[in-house]
């Protein structure tokens, strides 16, 4: 992983999930999986964050909050939708208050679709989002091991 020259900081927001994914995201940071060994820190401030991790679907009330948080993050930024609910609405898609996945509001780079994601793929996704990023070519470039914005 020598190409990593920057430790991305994450910000986590619970859309309207059942908490299952939230606690698994937090579990990534705690000793067993220990995402922090890569210097990845869970920050509460969108202005400090590089990776926006959202769990759960989007409803009317949290739509502006997700959008607002995303807009406050500095470029370059990556959005990771953790869980099937964040991906498409999941089992809650038929609920009257669920609009759908996170991509209804903001562009998503990485999807981690599972009803209760094991921390391992979430870990991979959040520690190396640029590798999996769909928009990799457009927004992130690696030049001599340095990640810069285009």
């Amino acid at each position: 992983m020598s190409y990593i020259t920057k430790s991305p900081w994450i910000i986590h927001y619970d859309g309207s999930s059942c908490n299952g994914c939230d606690i698994e995201v937090l579990a990534c940071l705690t000793p067993l999986y220990d995402l922090e060994r890569f210097g990845i820190v869970n920050t509460g401030n969108p202005k400090h964050a590089d990776v926006f991790i959202i769990t759960g679907g989007i409803n009317e009330l949290n739509r502006p909050i997700v959008k607002n948080t995303y807009e406050q993050m500095p470029d370059p930024k990556v959005v990771v939708a953790v869980g099937i609910c964040a991906t498409s609405g999941g089992v809650f898609r038929d609920c009257y208050n669920i609009l759908g996945g996170v991509d209804k509001v903001i562009p998503v780079d990485v999807y981690v679709p599972d009803a209760r994601p094991d921390p391992s793929p979430s870990l991979t996704a959040s520690s190396r989002p640029w590798v999996f990023s769909k928009r990799n070519g457009q927004r992130w470039q690696r030049k001599g091991g340095e990640i810069i914005n285009d």
Partner: peptide
Amino acid sequence: GYVHRGLEKLVEKRDFQDYVFIAER
């Protein structure tokens, strides 16, 4: 209300055996 999904209403669309898994969520 930020996490409200409407799970109780979902029982109308799901079989009671399926709803066990919804209830779990």
